[in-house]
Simulated scan of single mutants.
Amino acid sequence: MKKILVPTDFSETATGALHAAQEIARQSGGTLHLLHVITPVIMPTATLDTTMGYNYSDPAVEQVMTRQLIEQAETQLQELAAASPVPVQTEVRLDQVTAGILETAEQTGAELIVIGSQGEGGTLFGSTHERVVRHSTCPVLSIREAKGRFSPQHIVLATDTEEHTPDIAPAVRQLQQLFGARLHVVTVRTASEAEEHTLQERLRTYAERHHLQDAALHVVTDEDVEEGILHFIDRQRADLVAMTTHGRSALVQLFSGSIAENVIHQGHRPVLTLHIEA
């Protein structure tokens, strides 16, 4: 994880995401790309300034206002970069926010996006976060709270044991090695699922396929997959949760009554996800 993209709206959770990214870069010897995306200012055409005598929809006025926003953001980014304990590149991009983040990730070859899951006031950047998670082609680490130092010691990787390409497991393995964390790989068995010994064998195959070492393998039996995962996370006192997300399985269905959404929005834990198309 040498190239880490950190989008920011300068909110408290975005600051928490920056601190988490700095810890990862410190351990990996990586570099951060700190990004702020500004949507171009477009004033309502009917708005007039009767005192000054010109129309605020004038492109020249919009350009001036946009330039002011860019200069303000550049100053804030430079201040954050100057205080960073790891190398930081900064960028202000004029674009739609989600598109700007995803395109920057592609252009910079980002191996990880670290993003706050709730923006200022709990609105704009929160919805942006959800769209980034859904469409990013690299893993996304979602940070909900800005409390404490990011140093995961108990990682829970929830899986349906199916073979996915790509899969979140390689990113989990890297974080486990960087922080010396204990890894728990878990799947949930419901009444309609295979026998427990079959799932145990699938877990062993999954761990071997992704070269997961020093990992405890768990089959949890529960009436509900989501509740089984959430209860297991609490019992293990996990400080990082990871899953590959797609639309085919109840275990990892994303943002539709999903486990990933509930884990991100109900708890304080960072959540690492990689979304793949069904």
Score class of each variant (00 low, 15 high):
Glu91His: 13
Glu120Ile: 12
Leu212Pro: 06
His211Ala: 09
Ala181Tyr: 12
His268Gly: 05
Val133Asp: 00
Gly228Lys: 09
Leu157Cys: 13
Ala82Tyr: 07
Ser256Gly: 01
Pro139Ala: 00
Tyr56Leu: 14
Gln27Lys: 14
Leu124Ser: 04
Val172Asp: 04
Val220Asp: 07
Thr104Val: 10
Gln22Lys: 13
Thr90Leu: 07
Thr50Ser: 03
Leu5His: 04
Leu240Pro: 14
Asp234Trp: 01
Glu62His: 03
Glu162Lys: 04
Ser151Tyr: 06
Val132His: 05
Ala110Tyr: 02
Thr47Cys: 01
Gly257Asp: 01
Leu48Gly: 02
His184Ser: 15
Glu196Thr: 15
Glu226Ser: 12
Thr47Ser: 05
Leu18Trp: 14
Arg93Pro: 13
Asp160Arg: 09
Asp214Ser: 14
Pro152Met: 13
Ile168Asn: 03
His197Val: 08
Thr244Trp: 08
Glu120Thr: 14
Gln253Pro: 00
Gln78His: 14
Val263Phe: 00
Lys147Asn: 02
Val86Gln: 14
Pro7Tyr: 03
Ser142Gly: 10
Leu230Phe: 02
Gly122Thr: 11
Phe179Trp: 10
Glu74Pro: 04
Thr165Leu: 11
Gln213Ala: 15
Val61Thr: 08
Thr98Trp: 05
Asp58Gln: 11
Leu203Thr: 12
Glu12Trp: 05
Asp224Phe: 11
Leu124Met: 06
Ser136Phe: 02
Gln236Glu: 14
Pro166Asp: 09
Gly148Cys: 13
Asp167Gln: 06
Gly228Glu: 09
Ser142Phe: 00
Leu203Cys: 11
Asp167Lys: 07
Val252Ile: 08
Glu103Arg: 13
Gln176Arg: 12
Arg189Asn: 10
Arg204Phe: 08
Leu254Ile: 04
Gly16Phe: 04
Gly267Phe: 03
Arg269Thr: 11
Val185Asp: 07
Arg248Asn: 06
His211Asn: 06
His184Phe: 15
Thr161Leu: 04
Gln89Thr: 14
Asp167Glu: 08
Ser249Glu: 01
Pro87Cys: 09
Arg204Asn: 10
Phe232Tyr: 15
Arg269Met: 08
Gln153Thr: 15
Gly116Cys: 10
Phe10Gly: 08
Thr31Pro: 04
Leu112Met: 02
Arg235Leu: 10
Arg269Phe: 05
Thr47Gly: 00
Met43Pro: 04
Glu62Asp: 08
Ser57Met: 03
Gly247Ile: 03
Val64Arg: 08
Leu124Gln: 08
Glu195Trp: 02
Arg144Ile: 00
Gln266Ser: 13
Thr98Val: 15
Asp234Val: 02
Gln253Trp: 00
Gly267Tyr: 05
Glu145Ala: 01
Ala260Lys: 02
Ala169Pro: 05
Val114Tyr: 01
Val252Thr: 13
Glu23Gln: 15
Ala105Cys: 09
Gly109Ile: 06
Leu157Ile: 11
Ala14Phe: 11
Gly121Tyr: 01
Glu106Ile: 14
Glu79Thr: 15
Leu175Thr: 11
Ala278Phe: 04
Ile276Val: 15
Met43Gln: 11
Leu141Met: 09
Glu227Tyr: 12
Gly257Gln: 06
Thr187Arg: 11
Asp239Cys: 12
His211Gly: 03
Gly257Phe: 00
Ala181Leu: 13
Arg204Pro: 09
Ser57Asn: 07
Glu91Val: 10
Val61Asn: 04
